[in-house]
Design a protein around this nucleic acid. Structure first.
Lengths: 139, 139
DNA sequence: ATGCACCCTGTAGCCGCTACAGGGTCAAGG
DNA sequence: CCTTGACCCTGTAGCGGCTACAGGGTGCAT
């Protein structure tokens, strides 16, 4: 008797719905079932789900996690592929940060110019209406 | 005769599909139709869609854009609400940047430790398997 | 009259969940 | 023994913001 779905959810900071979703999509292997047809998760499932949640927390998408989990299951392989996946994700995160920083600058600029008053004179709405008033390349 | 959907799309850097989607959801008002049942967009539609795309480019969600567009249509209103929406979005962007910066640090750390070799000794997969190896609070 | 670029509607899919509805299981308390 | 309540099951649909068809119509040039 291992873990029921609720216990596994609590142990990993997820929900039963999410766990069932991972099972449906094949990310988490199908567990055994009890007589009453309840899922019966093993310690291995717990490890795997912790891995998945950790990777999700770092922003890896499901396809990447699938690859990473397959690699983790096969210790003799070269880790170059793991490196590639992680580096690629790091690049994507860095690009996203840069893009958001540009948005932040533009938004700060907009908000700082708002002096209250009516919509007619509102800089926020003016800027939204006219891209040329933007100081940065943001999109 | 105003703009057909393809011309409007080119003028605003979108696609006909997206424009029809905005119309369906009521974000963009329904345009007139030609005899052949083609959409016939006016200059006002062009302005509105430019506004929408600009705000989307700045990361506002559709609900916010709906509010902002309604405000822009009514120049006598107080712009405090526009300010609140923009400031709230700015806050959200700043929080997102901070979160991504934490992810970036953790990912850099992971990737920097990978020295090649087999999966068995790969730091990337080790760290993913054991959250306690993380140096930062990332999720 | 034929080809081609464009337009139309309607529906389904993407990601990663989340939220039901409508039922079954199981242990504790009366 | 029966009920209550917490938990579990399956299946389906929804979120946001598009995107991608299929299957058909329009309009202009050759």
């Amino acid at each position: 008797m291992g873990l029921k779905i609720g216990a596994l959810a609590r142990a990993t900071g997820t929900t039963p719905e999410t766990i069932r979703y991972y099972e449906r999509t094949g990310l988490l292997p199908k567990p055994a079932r009890t007589d009453g047809n309840y899922r019966d998760f093993s310690a291995e499932h717990l490890r795997r789900l912790s891995f998945i949640r950790h990777a999700r927390g770092l922003g890896f998408d499901i396809a990447d996690i699938r690859s990473l989990a397959a690699l983790a299951d096969d210790p003799d392989q070269d880790c170059a592929q793991a490196d590639r996946i992680a580096s690629g994700h790091l690049d994507a995160v860095e690009r996203k940060i840069e893009q958001l920083a540009r948005l932040r600058n533009e938004l700060r600029h907009m908000v700082a110019q708002c002096r209250g008053g009516s919509v007619a004179t509102c800089r926020i709405l003016h800027v939204l209406s006219d891209h040329d008033l933007c100081t940065e390349e943001h999109s």
